[in-house]
Amino acid sequence: MAASSRRDGGAAGRAKAERSAWVLLTPMCLLMAVAFILPVGLFLLYSFYRFRGGRLEETFTLETYWRFMTDELYLITIYDTLQLAVLATLLCLVISYPLAYAMWRMRSPGLQKLIAFIVFAPVLVSVVVRSYGWTVVLADQGPVNFILTRLGLTSGPVSLVYNMTGTVISLAHVFLPFVVFPILASMLRLDPTLREAAEDLGASWWKTFRSITLPLTLPGVVAGAQICFTLSLGSFVTPAILGGGRVLVLPIQIYTATSDINWPVAAVGGLCLLVMAFIAVVAFGRLSQYSEAV
């Protein structure tokens, strides 16, 4: 900012910069107010109303909150949402870390670039298409069951779709690029002399990995896990297509409640989702501070 102070100089220049900034920020502030703060505010207001006898009653009450905390159906929904997000994040990490490691250690830059493009490519394909693809891959008569039966590993088809298993696999596929690239970035930032020093001092591969590579790439792992976890919490299309009605997550519950004009329940469900996402962001923030301190 040395350049701007040379040009403007002093408090008057500071005030001018401040004014220019706010002129440029006006459209974004208007957009935030109209499309974000206003609707979400109204949404939260609806959580204090109630739905009775097929009608929406606009009276202040905590009834919907109470129902949400006591009704078993809603507790199962919250549990399923968390379970799906945790499992999808774990599967994503298990695939992403070795893949990013392999990309990092590749000698040929051409091959590295090719793999990077393959990892990135599915982002450009609709989630509906990818989820549909997984229903075919994992179907009872699909290729996975075909190979399993041919190898004699199973007698009958293993049911992989229209349940939690298929939803987790598909969700991990959807968010894979968002986990691979932050991990790869943290590996590329790693100072190569550290590893070389450790190896020259006679440390084994495992020891070098455990005491240098892994701790120094943890911030990338945490960043990737945070993106995967928060996005998984809010996922709707994949559980709707691959869950077959057996994976009851909050976004599906919000969708159904909104369709039934039961807006208070949709609002409390949405608030629940927001609180979970917020806790996740704070927790991962703490985790990332901790991982950087290691």
């Binding site: 900012m1 701007s4 910069a17 401040e18 220019s20 900034a21 706010w22 440029l24 920020l25 974004m28 935030m32 974000f36 609707p39 979400v40 109204l42 949404f43 928060t230 919490l233 809010g234 709707f236 909050l250 976004p251 919000i254 969708y255 909104t258 949709a266 949405g270 989702l273 927001l274 996402a277 917020f278 962001v281």
Partner: peptide
């Protein structure tokens, strides 16, 4: 360029729609 007062807080606020579940935004 202009670094208005509280620019990092402003940036965090402007990026916050990413964390909001899309279903919540749609219904709201």
């Amino acid at each position: 360029r202009y670094r208005p007062r509280g620019h990092s807080a402003l940036k965090a606020i402007f990026l916050s729609p990413v964390v909001l579940p899309k279903m919540v935004l749609g219904v709201a």
